[in-house]
Simulated scan of single mutants.
Amino acid sequence: MKKRFLTTSIALTIGLSTFGGILPATNQAMDVKAATTTNVQNNDQAVAAKADQLIQTGKSLIGQATYSNTVYKPTYPYKFSCASFLMYIFEKNGVDLATYNEDYMIQQGTYVPRNQLQKGDLLFFKSKKTGTDPDHVGMYIGDNKMIHMADSKQNIIISDLNSKPYYTDNYVSARRVLPTLLPANPATKGDMIVQNAFDYKNKVTMSTTNDEKNLRFTGPGFVNYVFKKSGVNLGSTNLKDQMNLGTTVSRNNLKKGDLVFFNSVPGSTTPSQVAIYAGDQRLIIPSSSGITTRVLFVDYYNQHYIKAKRVF
């Protein structure tokens, strides 16, 4: 169900600072076309294996977590909303949805007809009579069933999609995020960059100076380090210099590993933040709060977007 987290367990606040932090995302989705490219090189076996991992993790949390639309607690005793439950199990298995909102999840991946559902697909429901955003999300696990954080009385359960009028009458859509959120097979240079950024996400310390030996970085310094680890030499830890590298690409043609630049004042051409595009509208953002992930759908990014550059 719709949620607004109140705890600081999840890094939701990214303040403007010397790191060029971005303000928190709003809950209002943009009507934009996703720059989604299906990784057709991922074979069915890899996707099925990942889906089984997601299902296993989800089932392991039955009886271990309780419902909350205001608190996200990723340690026992767990607390999740319907969307943050899925965000957690995907992230635990190396797939970052980069959002805890079902209205952003429904804009990821590719549309799937109800009669073509596969394990790992996201299922969306809407019972409210106003607005267009879904208010519930679950994950398909096969045999016409889904696992989901249902509500405060039931918590995490497995439900047959025909078992209640809620599921049959309020079904909205399904989205397939596997394999679009997985690396290609074989992995591309962009996949390598994104994976390295995720690998160092919880290992680095953000600072006002760069110290590779101790993994302390500014935002642009982190980007430079990740690219160097991936075999791409940017040659600069300066934000303005990085925005002058490579070739400009349109927002609708973003690919994994592209650099995306934002300003602090709408309309300004002076960058205050650099992010790494992670595919399917996801951003990896180094800021004073650490390395966080967000989606590009929200109004803030639309208002503060300057340009994107391809550097390899």
Rank of each mutant, 00 (worst) to 15 (best):
T8V: 14
L16D: 10
T18E: 06
P24Y: 02
T26C: 15
Q28E: 14
A29Y: 14
A29H: 07
M30K: 06
M30F: 05
D31G: 08
D31T: 15
V32T: 15
V32H: 02
Q41C: 15
N42Y: 10
N43T: 15
V47A: 09
A48T: 10
A49T: 15
K50W: 00
K50C: 09
A51P: 14
D52Q: 13
Q64H: 02
T66S: 11
T66K: 04
T66W: 01
S68N: 10
N69I: 00
V71N: 05
P74V: 04
P74M: 06
T75K: 15
Y76K: 15
F80L: 03
C82P: 09
G94A: 15
V95A: 09
T99W: 04
N101L: 15
Y104G: 05
Q116C: 11
Q116H: 08
F124S: 06
F125S: 01
T130P: 05
G131Y: 15
G131A: 13
D135G: 09
G138V: 08
I147Q: 05
D151V: 03
D151T: 05
S152G: 09
I158Y: 01
K164H: 12
V172Y: 12
V172C: 11
A174F: 01
V177K: 11
L181C: 05
L182N: 06
D199Y: 11
M206V: 08
S207N: 12
T208K: 08
T208P: 01
L215F: 01
R216L: 04
T218S: 01
K229F: 07
G235H: 13
T237K: 12
N238Q: 10
Q242M: 14
T248M: 11
K256H: 03
P266K: 14
P271M: 01
S272G: 10
S272E: 05
Q273K: 05
P286G: 04
I291W: 02
T293G: 07
Y301C: 03
Q303R: 13
